[in-house]
Write a protein that binds this DNA or RNA. Structure first.
Lengths: 202, 202
DNA sequence: TGTCTCGGAATGAACGTTCATTCCGTTTTG
DNA sequence: CAAAACGGAATGAACGTTCATTCCGAGACA
């Protein structure tokens, strides 16, 4: 029993240390030896938990993805109006990144990296599927525009990454006010507009 | 004279080959020796044109950034209405990426990489400054919302990257129709809305 | 209880490979 | 022919991975 607990703890320790170092130095700036050193374990030990460096990255990628989705659905009320639910998901996500900038840097650094396997990519898709379903629901019920899924993702996720990352780069704090307005703009981008209504305004 | 021409040609050759390989294999999947081999030159020759591998990447990053901006301002008419100019810039940019997916992959793979120097980052800012000024103009004249610059960039650039990249990943063609609608949605995200006007509609 | 045995977890030095960079003989240029 | 450009073998540092060995804690035994 205790063995199992220790195993899990050590695996987590390795993952945490890897995240820390990778987000600072990137893939080829963080040798296994450094990860081992910072984790206070032997280099060989890492290979008891992960087949190789690549797998370590892939596992970490999936792990973080999972945490993000979990955070997004905190205080999410299935019964609330669509726009309200949109707001909760969006704000939760950007707040997760605000609180965990290392995760943002890691994810964005590795999203398009060639050593992230196709298996990881499809697993990643599976993890975010609740969000995709949320968008499909919005399209079907005409809460949001009838756009391809990827367009919608781009309109909604793009701003989150850029806002947090640019503020990080320039040592600025991402303010609640910024977030409030950005969320509204994102909603404007995707919310359903009857074209005829638009004409009437003019 | 010819020296200069040849110099430029070989430098370009190296940069082109590097882009080709890097976008496929990533930084640590493309050794200098491979770049040299594919370019049909000696490995040492590369060091006549670039101090080291890092500089090579940084120069390429800047170079591509420049090409993108150049493409954006093709057929741009300073005298046209704001929304029209927005459309031209946006469509030009996404079309550049559609035509040059390797550039997209390269830029996005290295945007947050630690070996892209702060010098490169600020130079990059300088290059895109016309676009930033365009946004500032829009804010001042109330064509677009009064949002922080980075929020605006996120709202506009995020979708471009994601749409092209996701379609690439899934071996789909990015259609003109998709682009047409995505541009409209982006505009909806940033266009100025008088709040009172919105109230009246309801 | 104290001692012995055993198995798997952990270790880190060693290995083989890879790779950026250098160096120098050769070729090209003007 | 002098000087610059070039090629690619040589170099040495760095790295991922392996593996013989040590360590440790849990039973077995008396």
């Amino acid at each position: 029993m205790e063995q199992v607990v220790k195993k899990i703890d050590k695996k987590t320790l390795i993952l945490d240390t890897t995240l820390e170092l990778l987000s600072e130095n990137g893939f080829h700036g963080t040798p296994i030896s450094l990860i081992a050193e910072n984790a206070g374990i032997g280099a060989g030990t890492i290979y008891r938990y992960f087949k190789n460096k690549e797998e370590l990255i892939n596992v970490l990628f999936i792990e973080i993805q999972r945490r993000i989705i979990k955070a997004m659905y905190c205080n999410y009320n299935e019964a609330a109006p669509y726009q309200e639910r949109f707001k909760v998901l969006w704000i939760n996500m950007i707040n997760y990144y605000r609180k965990h900038p290392k995760d943002l840097i890691f994810i964005e650094q590795h999203r398009y990296a060639p050593y992230v396997s196709t298996l990881t990519r499809s697993e990643s898709m599976r993890i975010i599927s609740p969000v995709l379903l949320f968008f499909l629901e919005g399209k079907k019920k005409r809460f949001i525009k009838h756009l391809p899924l990827y367009t919608i993702i781009g309109l909604i996720y793009g701003p989150i990454v850029t806002i947090v990352k640019l503020n990080l780069d320039h040592n600025r704090v991402t303010t609640d006010d910024q977030i409030f307005h950005a969320e509204q703009a994102c909603w404007d981008a995707v919310k359903y507009n009857d074209t005829k209504l638009e004409e009437n305004i003019k």
